[in-house]
Design a protein around this nucleic acid. Structure first.
Lengths: 219, 219, 219, 219
DNA sequence: GATGAATGAGGCTTCATTCAT
DNA sequence: AATGAATGAAGCCTCATTCAT
């Protein structure tokens, strides 16, 4: 198993296909579309301006993506399906026993790993968040391939550490919610709401992790 | 000071103007617009369909709102300005001393109070969240009249209870972030992501409050 | 019953609505569309050029006709439904007994009556003929409301005169076909294929009528 | 002179070039184009779908036919030029004297011969009929190489039999019109308007021929 | 010869907004 | 105050055709 920069060996991030099989023009189209979707939102972005920014003819967009919506989905789905990548590991229990003695270690690993992911795919993640409410396909896909997986795996983890006596005995769903929202809250503040502030990431992550741990510590 | 149903006397919610001065047609326009903006987003909603749903002529909308965007703002700004209402109280310190001996009491009051608010204005809150990234006016207004106020007042509260030795000595901004994201996380899960689940609100709120308290408790 | 110019009293032609309820612009749109459809065919006619010829904005077309195809149907269906008008008479038998002693009289009346109709609606009739093969609605409507009626009534007439011993005993469907194609053949040659020739209408009609009569005369 | 199946020796049908010199792909293109032109009409058919149906690349069509219209003409003109083939015989008078004692024989031969032709080329004939009004080249070509020839030769025939006292003394052009429309009327009904009916071809042709003969018989 | 990516003009339609009634 | 016909710009998408491979 390859070594990842943040030291989370098992959290191999089978990378979102870095558009390796896209033509030069396709890459430019995607780049321009991501920019525009982020700036104005999907429905306020016009294919004609996307084409202009990409430096291609408008028709070229439609040679590669049958509709404007296909373009959105082509951009957003691969990222979505990798959002929960670190949880899709064959033998989660083994990983927990081997690599993470404490919930704390697990948390920290996840946060750091997902931070590199989000940092890399921030614009697309933003688009995904914006557009999910308005596109049935995205919503179902998100629920089927992200939310459910995430929840199921996370539940295992929570129960694992509850059994070990580390975590308070509350419904796992609540523990998950509290853990995740604290983490997401950090990402939200850090990357979306106040990205311009100078952040001491190490410290903030530590605070967040400790906050969750104390919040969920078995009394 | 009037008695509020959740017993938070001071948290008088000078109600968002219940469209008291709107004509009958105006009300129908606003209702239809809220529906559509929520379903499809602002930019994917057409004024002609809003008019149809409202049962008015296309022109009528523009008699009351100069542009489609004005309509959005007319809907969204009053709610926005009331989002932080409970914090805009003249003598916050006095309120703290008088009404809330512990951060716990304060938190619980806020959560319950804001819950009734969100419950009442959920559709508009959703629209606000969706559209903020794309409208400069909304963003600045939000920062000027919501975020800053909220932050300043909340900071006072945090410092107040840090001084009392109740809360851990971390940067107030971090404590605020952690508190708010835990609360918002609840609302998000409760009202936006999984509203269809059967929620034991009392219990979940209690878990959330305890989570924050433990997470931020002075060690 | 009003007197018609060609003396066919009963063949009152409840006129195709002379666009009495159309707005001024609508009339211009229809006029331009008819022109273009005839010149280039429906699918080769562009709404933008129709608008230009009509002297209206392109959007105006779509305020009155939801789609380009609706425009076609609005033009073509009223004419279609009047194509067989003279046959839709309440008591056909009585008309035959009262007004037409011989098949000859009947034929002549029909030819003259339909000639005035075709002369008046020629462009639309041409469009109808051109577009019927490509539009399911037109085809079914034509079969249901034109072909069947026409056939049924005509069959009655044929049988009527066969019983009277005027017409040869061949299958009515064949007699109908032969009568109609001779008549249509005249109209086709007269108005569509060689309209520029100088026609002695009286004479040609007489020839055609005699041709049919001799062709179908009981031997 | 080769023997034709319908026994009309002289009516040799120098077959429409059975695409003998077309490449495999070209044949598929033509086949696909004929299908589409018939289904949707020329102008509503797209070269890209023709290519797809033919299983060739979009560009391939234009390698063989400079424009979409060229493709149409390539399909339609050879059939058009053979429409009147049986009339383009060197010594018509001799043929008449030798082979056809009566107009009746001539008519019957022509009908049967043209029926095999139409049966074989029906789709293209339909396309030709549809597109003639919209393409100047087709129209002039039709008039120059079909209508005029047809008319001139037919006129000879009519006059020939008028002189023999078989046919009524009406203007040849009228006799031609009446003869042709009766024949075409049969083909129209038989192959275009009601092809799904069970036809007793022998009988219907006989009725049609007799109808014409009686219709034009010298009194 | 064959391909199919690329083009940009033009297709139909919807849009927000205006204005005479 | 309310209407809805009218606008023309702009939207998404398809088209016939070209050309480098």
């Amino acid at each position: 198993m390859k070594k990842t920069e943040d030291g989370t060996d098992w959290l191999f991030d089978e990378e979102v296909n870095e558009s390796g099989d896209l033509t030069e023009k396709q890459k430019r189209i995607v780049k321009a579309a991501v920019e525009m979707f982020q700036e104005k939102g999907f429905s306020a972005s016009s294919t004609s301006e996307i084409a202009r920014r990409a430096g291609v003819a408008e028709g070229t967009i439609f040679r590669h993506y049958r509709t404007k919506k296909d373009l959105l989905l082509a951009i957003v789905t691969p990222v979505m399906s990798h959002l929960v990548a670190p949880f899709i590991v064959k033998d989660l229990d083994k990983v927990l026993k081997t690599d993470y003695e404490h919930y704390e270690d697990f948390l920290r690993a996840i946060v750091k790993n997902r931070q590199t992911f989000i940092r890399k795919h921030l614009p697309i993640v933003k688009i995904l968040i914006q557009e999910i409410p308005f596109h049935e396909e995205l919503r179902t896909q998100f629920i089927e391939h992200v939310a459910k997986d995430l929840f199921d795996r996370f539940e295992k983890v929570i129960i694992h550490f509850q059994k070990k006596g580390e975590l308070i005995q509350i419904p796992p769903s609540s523990a998950i919610r509290l853990s995740i929202t604290a983490i997401l809250g950090f990402f939200l503040a850090r990357y979306i709401m106040v990205p311009e502030r100078e952040w001491d990431d190490e410290n903030e992550i530590e605070l967040t992790v400790q906050f969750i741990l104390n919040g969920l510590k078995a009394q």
